[in-house]
């Protein structure tokens, strides 16, 4: 590093600063379920808006000026560029500040970060997506990428479980996939207090009863709260999935997103740069992973 000239280093603070957030405008706020909105954003700088791309499974650091930063998965697919969709649950300081925003308000974004899903590995295979609750947020990017590049994948299967129909994220969108012949979309709710749910009622693992799949040609991507991992991983192993064909997206506290601040470490890996997508094999080998 001593070889680098002074001007390069100083310029890099201004020009190539990995912590630099870029302003983005909220172009749409969609109330999906209570405390869970879908925000559509577009970078103010047209150059960035036009060139920004990502891999499904990557995340961005979202800044609410004066409040702070939080890691959020990109829920939209890179096959639909121009805007970014973020599915955000309101839980704390930054997410509450976001919920006070309206269309046309400004936030700031840097990224994309993380490894994302190994697309080369997934192409040409069957893809099984299993999500519980907010776990659909990172998987939705992969789902639409696969649908938009349908020819590059074999069978596509989505399994998604929510507590009630009122808690189901992207409900209209997912229900509209149920009838399609080019993919299998299996939805379930734990219970249906309103009595208006036409689909399956029961816990997420029960959907495996409807599944016809050849594990040796399939990659599974799983995302959800800890309870989802507890039950789903076992089912997948029982079905014959090898541990490196099961992918999962992990959440950790993150302050930098670029492998410096130390907060997201699991064992000897950093979730922000080595993840957030890990194989089940990684998970078993890294302490405190799940």
């Amino acid at each position: 590093m001593h070889q680098q000239t002074e001007t390069t280093l100083h310029r890099s603070v201004v020009r190539e600063n990995p912590y630099q957030p870029h302003m983005a405008r909220i172009v749409r706020v969609y109330n999906m379920v209570a405390d869970n909105y879908l925000f559509t954003l577009r970078f103010v700088d047209e150059q960035i808006a036009g060139t920004f791309t990502h891999r499904p499974g990557q995340f961005i650091m979202l800044s609410l000026p004066g409040t702070g930063e939080a890691p959020i998965s990109i829920s939209s697919s890179p096959s639909r560029p121009g805007v970014l969709e973020l599915c955000v649950r309101r839980v704390g300081r930054v997410t509450n500040a976001l919920y006070r925003c309206r269309t046309n308000d400004l936030v700031a974004i840097r990224g994309p970060y993380g490894n994302g899903f190994p697309m080369e590995e997934l192409m040409g295979k069957n893809v099984l997506l299993v999500a519980g609750g907010l776990g659909i947020a990172p998987l939705r990017s992969l789902l639409w990428y696969a649908i938009d590049n349908r020819g590059r994948f074999e069978n596509i299967t989505v399994m998604y479980g929510a507590r009630t129909p009122q808690d189901m994220l992207f409900r209209d969108e997912l229900v509209s996939l149920v009838g399609r012949t080019d993919l299998t979309c299996l939805l379930t709710v734990d219970e249906d207090p309103g009595g208006d749910w036409k689909g399956h009622i029961g816990l997420l693992p029960q959907l495996f009863d409807y599944l016809a799949i050849r594990p040796e040609r399939t990659c599974a991507a799983v995302c959800g709260p800890p309870v989802v991992y507890r039950f789903i991983l076992k089912r997948l192993l029982d079905l014959g999935f090898t541990k490196d064909r099961i992918l999962m997206s992990l959440e950790r506290r993150m302050r930098c997103g670029v492998g410096k601040c130390g907060h997201c470490s699991v064992g000897y890996k950093y979730t922000c740069i080595h993840g957030p997508i890990f194989t089940y094999w990684d998970a078993i080998n890294l302490p405190e992973m799940i």
Partner: peptide, 20 residues
Amino acid sequence: LDEVFGKGYLDPYYLTRRKN
């Protein structure tokens, strides 16, 4: 620390100080 801040994503604050 150079390994951490000077590899992968470069931390320009640290590296500028290291230089000066």
